[in-house]
Amino acid sequence: MNQDKRQILAQYEKSMTWVESLADVTEEQWRTPIEVGKWSVAEVIGHLIPWDEFVVSKRIPLLFTEDSLPKAPNVQEMNANAANSSRLQSKEETIGKFLNGRHQLIDALHHLTDEQWQHSFHIGESELTLYRYFSGLVEHDWHHFLQIEKVLK
Rank of each mutant, 00 (worst) to 15 (best):
N2H: 12
D4M: 07
D4S: 14
K5A: 13
K5Y: 12
K5P: 09
R6V: 12
R6I: 11
Q7W: 12
Y12M: 10
K14E: 14
S15G: 04
M16P: 00
W18E: 08
E20A: 14
E20G: 11
S21T: 07
S21E: 10
T26H: 08
T26D: 08
Q29G: 11
T32G: 13
P33C: 09
V36G: 11
G37P: 06
W39S: 04
E43G: 08
V44T: 09
G46Q: 10
H47E: 10
H47P: 05
L48F: 15
I49T: 11
P50L: 08
P50R: 08
E53D: 11
E53C: 02
E53H: 10
I60T: 01
L62W: 01
L62T: 01
S68Q: 12
S68M: 10
L69E: 02
P70V: 04
K71I: 11
E77K: 15
M78P: 03
M78C: 06
N79H: 11
A83L: 10
Q89R: 15
S90E: 12
K91D: 08
K91V: 06
K91Y: 06
K91A: 05
E92T: 15
E93Q: 15
T94I: 12
T94A: 10
G96H: 07
F98V: 06
L99W: 05
Q104W: 08
L105T: 00
I106F: 07
D107I: 13
L109R: 01
L109W: 02
Q118L: 13
Q118T: 13
H119G: 02
S120R: 12
S120I: 07
S120V: 09
F121E: 01
I123P: 00
S126C: 00
E127Y: 01
Y133L: 02
Y133C: 00
Y133S: 00
S135D: 05
S135T: 03
G136S: 07
V138F: 02
V138Y: 03
D141V: 05
Q147G: 01
V151P: 01
V151E: 03
